Simulated scan of single mutants.
Amino acid sequence: MLYFIPTPIGNLSDISFRSLEILKICEIIICEDTRVCKSLISFLNSKFNVQIKPKKFISLHTHNETQFFKNITLDFFDKNIAYMSDAGMPGISDPGSSLIKYALNHNLSYEVLPGANAALVALVSSGFCKKEFIFMGFLSNKGKERQKDIEKLLNNPYPSIVYESPKRILSLIETIVNLEETREIFIMKEISKKFETKLRANAKDLFEILKNTNLKGEWVVVLKEKDQEEQMNFLCEKDILELDLPLKTKSKLLSKIYGKNSKELYKKLLLSQDGIKY
Protein backbone atom coordinates (compact mmCIF):
# COMPACT_ATOMS: atom_id res chain seq x y z
CA MET A 1 0.00 0.00 0.00
CA LEU A 2 1.14 3.52 -0.79
CA TYR A 3 0.53 6.09 1.95
CA PHE A 4 0.78 9.87 1.68
CA ILE A 5 1.66 11.14 5.14
CA PRO A 6 1.45 14.82 6.22
CA THR A 7 4.47 15.98 8.19
CA PRO A 8 4.66 18.62 10.95
CA ILE A 9 4.94 22.20 9.69
CA GLY A 10 6.50 23.40 12.91
CA ASN A 11 5.70 21.55 16.11
CA LEU A 12 6.58 17.84 16.08
CA SER A 13 3.39 17.13 18.03
CA ASP A 14 1.40 18.02 14.90
CA ILE A 15 2.12 14.50 13.63
CA SER A 16 -0.89 12.23 14.11
CA PHE A 17 -0.90 8.97 16.06
CA ARG A 18 -2.15 7.20 12.93
CA SER A 19 0.77 8.57 10.90
CA LEU A 20 3.24 7.21 13.44
CA GLU A 21 1.57 3.79 13.37
CA ILE A 22 1.72 3.61 9.58
CA LEU A 23 5.31 4.81 9.41
CA LYS A 24 6.29 1.90 11.69
CA ILE A 25 5.15 -0.63 9.08
CA CYS A 26 6.59 1.09 6.00
CA GLU A 27 9.65 -0.49 4.40
CA ILE A 28 10.37 2.42 2.06
CA ILE A 29 9.95 6.17 2.44
CA ILE A 30 9.81 8.36 -0.66
CA CYS A 31 10.53 12.00 0.13
CA GLU A 32 11.64 15.34 -1.31
CA ASP A 33 14.97 15.45 0.53
CA THR A 34 16.32 12.27 2.16
CA ARG A 35 18.45 14.27 4.63
CA VAL A 36 15.43 16.24 5.88
CA CYS A 37 13.31 13.09 6.08
CA LYS A 38 15.93 11.05 7.95
CA SER A 39 16.33 13.87 10.46
CA LEU A 40 12.54 14.08 10.96
CA ILE A 41 12.27 10.31 11.50
CA SER A 42 15.07 10.49 14.08
CA PHE A 43 13.26 13.29 15.96
CA LEU A 44 9.95 11.39 15.88
CA ASN A 45 11.56 8.20 17.20
CA SER A 46 13.13 10.13 20.05
CA LYS A 47 10.13 12.28 21.00
CA PHE A 48 7.46 9.60 20.83
CA ASN A 49 9.60 6.58 21.72
CA VAL A 50 8.64 4.73 18.54
CA GLN A 51 10.61 2.45 16.22
CA ILE A 52 10.31 3.83 12.70
CA LYS A 53 13.03 2.02 10.77
CA PRO A 54 12.47 1.98 7.00
CA LYS A 55 14.91 -0.09 4.98
CA LYS A 56 15.29 2.56 2.32
CA PHE A 57 14.82 6.28 1.63
CA ILE A 58 14.26 7.39 -1.98
CA SER A 59 14.17 11.01 -3.15
CA LEU A 60 11.48 12.29 -5.51
CA HIS A 61 11.55 15.93 -6.55
CA THR A 62 10.95 18.11 -9.60
CA HIS A 63 14.43 17.49 -10.98
CA ASN A 64 14.35 13.68 -10.94
CA GLU A 65 10.65 12.84 -11.52
CA THR A 66 11.16 11.50 -15.05
CA GLN A 67 14.03 9.24 -14.04
CA PHE A 68 12.23 8.07 -10.89
CA PHE A 69 9.16 6.82 -12.76
CA LYS A 70 11.32 5.33 -15.50
CA ASN A 71 13.22 3.21 -12.97
CA ILE A 72 10.32 1.75 -10.98
CA THR A 73 7.99 -1.14 -11.83
CA LEU A 74 4.49 -1.82 -10.53
CA ASP A 75 5.64 -4.60 -8.20
CA PHE A 76 7.65 -1.96 -6.34
CA PHE A 77 4.34 -0.95 -4.74
CA ASP A 78 3.64 -4.42 -3.35
CA LYS A 79 5.44 -3.21 -0.20
CA ASN A 80 4.17 -0.70 2.35
CA ILE A 81 5.52 2.63 1.12
CA ALA A 82 5.16 6.13 2.56
CA TYR A 83 5.51 9.40 0.72
CA MET A 84 6.42 12.40 2.91
CA SER A 85 6.98 16.02 1.91
CA ASP A 86 9.54 18.16 3.73
CA ALA A 87 6.71 19.82 5.66
CA GLY A 88 2.93 19.78 5.48
CA MET A 89 0.41 18.06 3.27
CA PRO A 90 1.77 15.93 0.40
CA GLY A 91 0.72 17.02 -3.08
CA ILE A 92 0.30 20.71 -2.17
CA SER A 93 3.08 22.57 -3.98
CA ASP A 94 5.39 19.55 -3.83
CA PRO A 95 6.21 16.49 -6.01
CA GLY A 96 3.67 14.26 -4.27
CA SER A 97 1.05 15.16 -6.89
CA SER A 98 2.99 13.33 -9.62
CA LEU A 99 2.99 10.16 -7.50
CA ILE A 100 -0.78 10.46 -7.00
CA LYS A 101 -1.24 10.68 -10.79
CA TYR A 102 1.01 7.66 -11.28
CA ALA A 103 -1.07 5.64 -8.78
CA LEU A 104 -4.33 6.66 -10.49
CA ASN A 105 -3.00 5.87 -13.97
CA HIS A 106 -1.82 2.41 -12.90
CA ASN A 107 -4.78 1.53 -10.66
CA LEU A 108 -2.59 1.32 -7.55
CA SER A 109 -4.13 1.38 -4.09
CA TYR A 110 -3.15 4.45 -2.07
CA GLU A 111 -4.32 6.42 0.92
CA VAL A 112 -3.88 10.09 1.82
CA LEU A 113 -3.85 10.79 5.54
CA PRO A 114 -5.25 14.06 6.92
CA GLY A 115 -2.87 16.40 8.70
CA ALA A 116 -1.03 19.70 8.98
CA ASN A 117 -1.43 22.25 6.20
CA ALA A 118 0.00 25.79 6.30
CA ALA A 119 -2.47 27.25 3.77
CA LEU A 120 -5.57 26.29 5.76
CA VAL A 121 -4.09 27.37 9.09
CA ALA A 122 -3.32 30.82 7.66
CA LEU A 123 -6.71 31.09 5.92
CA VAL A 124 -8.64 30.37 9.11
CA SER A 125 -6.34 32.67 11.11
CA SER A 126 -6.93 35.55 8.64
CA GLY A 127 -10.67 35.78 9.33
CA PHE A 128 -11.23 36.49 5.61
CA CYS A 129 -12.90 33.22 4.60
CA LYS A 130 -16.66 32.72 4.74
CA LYS A 131 -16.94 29.76 2.38
CA GLU A 132 -15.02 29.89 -0.91
CA PHE A 133 -11.32 30.57 -1.27
CA ILE A 134 -8.58 30.23 -3.92
CA PHE A 135 -5.17 28.61 -3.40
CA MET A 136 -2.47 29.69 -5.87
CA GLY A 137 0.61 28.05 -4.34
CA PHE A 138 3.90 29.72 -5.27
CA LEU A 139 3.77 32.61 -7.73
CA SER A 140 6.20 32.83 -10.66
CA ASN A 141 9.61 34.01 -9.49
CA LYS A 142 10.22 36.97 -11.76
CA GLY A 143 9.45 38.95 -14.89
CA LYS A 144 6.15 39.37 -16.69
CA GLU A 145 4.77 36.04 -15.47
CA ARG A 146 5.11 37.15 -11.85
CA GLN A 147 3.42 40.47 -12.61
CA LYS A 148 0.53 38.62 -14.28
CA ASP A 149 0.21 36.27 -11.29
CA ILE A 150 0.00 39.20 -8.89
CA GLU A 151 -2.61 40.99 -11.03
CA LYS A 152 -4.64 37.77 -11.16
CA LEU A 153 -4.27 37.44 -7.38
CA LEU A 154 -5.69 40.93 -6.88
CA ASN A 155 -8.65 40.25 -9.19
CA ASN A 156 -9.78 37.01 -7.57
CA PRO A 157 -13.37 37.20 -6.29
CA TYR A 158 -12.55 35.14 -3.16
CA PRO A 159 -9.86 35.26 -0.44
CA SER A 160 -6.65 33.99 -2.04
CA ILE A 161 -3.70 32.15 -0.55
CA VAL A 162 -0.12 32.09 -1.83
CA TYR A 163 3.17 30.79 -0.46
CA GLU A 164 6.18 33.11 -0.55
CA SER A 165 9.86 32.87 0.34
CA PRO A 166 11.60 35.27 2.78
CA LYS A 167 13.60 36.62 -0.18
CA ARG A 168 10.51 37.80 -2.05
CA ILE A 169 7.89 38.58 0.61
CA LEU A 170 8.80 42.29 0.86
CA SER A 171 8.85 42.81 -2.91
CA LEU A 172 5.49 41.02 -3.22
CA ILE A 173 3.81 43.36 -0.75
CA GLU A 174 5.52 46.37 -2.38
CA THR A 175 4.12 45.37 -5.79
CA ILE A 176 0.65 45.05 -4.30
CA VAL A 177 1.04 48.51 -2.71
CA ASN A 178 1.79 49.95 -6.16
CA LEU A 179 -1.33 48.32 -7.60
CA GLU A 180 -3.81 48.53 -4.73
CA GLU A 181 -2.43 49.95 -1.48
CA THR A 182 -5.69 49.62 0.49
CA ARG A 183 -6.13 45.85 -0.05
CA GLU A 184 -6.29 44.00 3.27
CA ILE A 185 -3.65 41.30 3.65
CA PHE A 186 -2.90 38.69 6.31
CA ILE A 187 0.53 37.06 6.45
CA MET A 188 1.87 34.30 8.66
CA LYS A 189 5.16 32.46 9.17
CA GLU A 190 6.71 29.90 11.55
CA ILE A 191 3.28 28.28 11.89
CA SER A 192 2.92 26.21 15.10
CA LYS A 193 6.50 27.07 16.13
CA LYS A 194 7.64 29.06 19.16
CA PHE A 195 8.07 32.31 17.21
CA GLU A 196 4.92 32.07 15.08
CA THR A 197 4.20 35.47 13.51
CA LYS A 198 0.82 36.81 12.33
CA LEU A 199 0.30 40.23 10.75
CA ARG A 200 -2.85 41.77 9.26
CA ALA A 201 -3.11 45.25 7.72
CA ASN A 202 -3.72 47.01 4.42
CA ALA A 203 -0.93 46.61 1.88
CA LYS A 204 0.61 50.04 2.49
CA ASP A 205 0.80 49.68 6.28
CA LEU A 206 1.93 46.06 6.05
CA PHE A 207 4.84 47.04 3.79
CA GLU A 208 6.04 49.56 6.39
CA ILE A 209 5.74 46.96 9.16
CA LEU A 210 7.71 44.38 7.19
CA LYS A 211 10.58 46.79 6.64
CA ASN A 212 11.36 46.41 10.36
CA THR A 213 10.47 42.71 10.68
CA ASN A 214 12.70 39.64 10.64
CA LEU A 215 11.70 38.10 7.31
CA LYS A 216 13.37 34.70 7.80
CA GLY A 217 10.98 31.77 7.41
CA GLU A 218 8.45 30.61 4.85
CA TRP A 219 5.45 32.92 4.55
CA VAL A 220 1.79 32.25 3.81
CA VAL A 221 -0.03 35.27 2.36
CA VAL A 222 -3.82 35.61 2.40
CA LEU A 223 -5.45 38.44 0.43
CA LYS A 224 -8.96 39.54 1.21
CA GLU A 225 -11.27 39.22 -1.79
CA LYS A 226 -11.69 42.10 -4.21
CA ASP A 227 -14.33 44.60 -3.12
CA GLN A 228 -17.76 43.64 -4.53
CA GLU A 229 -18.32 47.07 -6.04
CA GLU A 230 -14.98 46.85 -7.85
CA GLN A 231 -15.88 43.36 -9.07
CA MET A 232 -19.10 44.69 -10.57
CA ASN A 233 -17.12 47.35 -12.43
CA PHE A 234 -14.66 44.82 -13.84
CA LEU A 235 -14.96 44.37 -17.61
CA CYS A 236 -15.33 40.84 -18.96
CA GLU A 237 -14.61 39.59 -22.50
CA LYS A 238 -18.24 40.03 -23.61
CA ASP A 239 -18.23 43.67 -22.43
CA ILE A 240 -15.04 44.44 -24.36
CA LEU A 241 -16.26 42.79 -27.58
CA GLU A 242 -19.45 44.85 -27.45
CA LEU A 243 -17.58 48.17 -27.15
CA ASP A 244 -17.47 50.46 -30.19
CA LEU A 245 -13.68 50.34 -30.45
CA PRO A 246 -11.12 49.39 -33.12
CA LEU A 247 -10.18 45.70 -33.13
CA LYS A 248 -6.57 46.52 -32.20
CA THR A 249 -7.76 48.31 -29.06
CA LYS A 250 -10.05 45.41 -28.15
CA SER A 251 -7.20 42.92 -28.63
CA LYS A 252 -4.97 44.96 -26.29
CA LEU A 253 -7.67 45.02 -23.61
CA LEU A 254 -8.24 41.25 -23.95
CA SER A 255 -4.49 40.62 -23.70
CA LYS A 256 -4.52 42.35 -20.31
CA ILE A 257 -7.24 39.98 -19.08
CA TYR A 258 -5.80 36.73 -20.40
CA GLY A 259 -2.09 37.54 -20.50
CA LYS A 260 -1.95 36.51 -24.15
CA ASN A 261 -0.23 38.12 -27.12
CA SER A 262 -2.34 41.04 -28.39
CA LYS A 263 -1.30 40.42 -32.03
CA GLU A 264 -2.56 36.82 -31.88
CA LEU A 265 -5.84 38.00 -30.34
CA TYR A 266 -6.14 40.64 -33.07
CA LYS A 267 -5.84 37.95 -35.75
CA LYS A 268 -8.54 35.89 -34.03
CA LEU A 269 -10.82 38.91 -33.84
CA LEU A 270 -10.34 39.49 -37.57
CA LEU A 271 -11.28 35.86 -38.26
CA SER A 272 -14.38 36.12 -36.04
CA GLN A 273 -15.38 39.27 -37.89
CA ASP A 274 -15.26 37.25 -41.10
CA GLY A 275 -17.62 34.71 -39.62
CA ILE A 276 -14.97 32.30 -38.33
CA LYS A 277 -15.47 31.52 -34.64
CA TYR A 278 -12.33 31.97 -32.53
Rank of each mutant, 00 (worst) to 15 (best):
D227H: 11
E180Y: 07
E237V: 04
D244E: 12
R200G: 01
K198N: 11
L241G: 13
I185N: 09
T249A: 03
K189N: 02
L241F: 12
D239A: 11
L172C: 10
K142Q: 05
T175Y: 15
E242K: 14
L223P: 00
E225N: 10
E218W: 07
L215T: 02
R200Y: 01
E229Q: 11
F138H: 01
S165M: 03
K144W: 05
N214D: 13
L223I: 00
P159I: 09
L154Q: 09
T182R: 06
S192V: 08
Q228T: 13
E229K: 13
C236F: 14
K252D: 05
N141E: 08
L172V: 10
K238D: 15
L235A: 08
K152L: 07
D149S: 14
E229N: 15
I176M: 15
S171H: 13
L247I: 14
K250M: 01
S251T: 07
E145Y: 02
S171C: 07
K167C: 04
T249G: 02
T175G: 13
E145M: 00
K189Q: 10
K142W: 06
K250Q: 00
V221R: 07
L243F: 12
P157K: 09
V221W: 09
V222M: 00
R183M: 04
I169R: 12
Q231T: 02
N202V: 00
K226G: 03
K216M: 07
K211I: 01
K238F: 12
S140H: 07
K148D: 05
E218T: 01
N202W: 10
M136D: 03
E190V: 11
L223Q: 03
K252N: 06
K148E: 11
I169F: 05
N178C: 12
F234I: 12
R146G: 04
L210F: 06
N156Y: 08
L235D: 14
E218A: 09
K144H: 12
E174S: 15
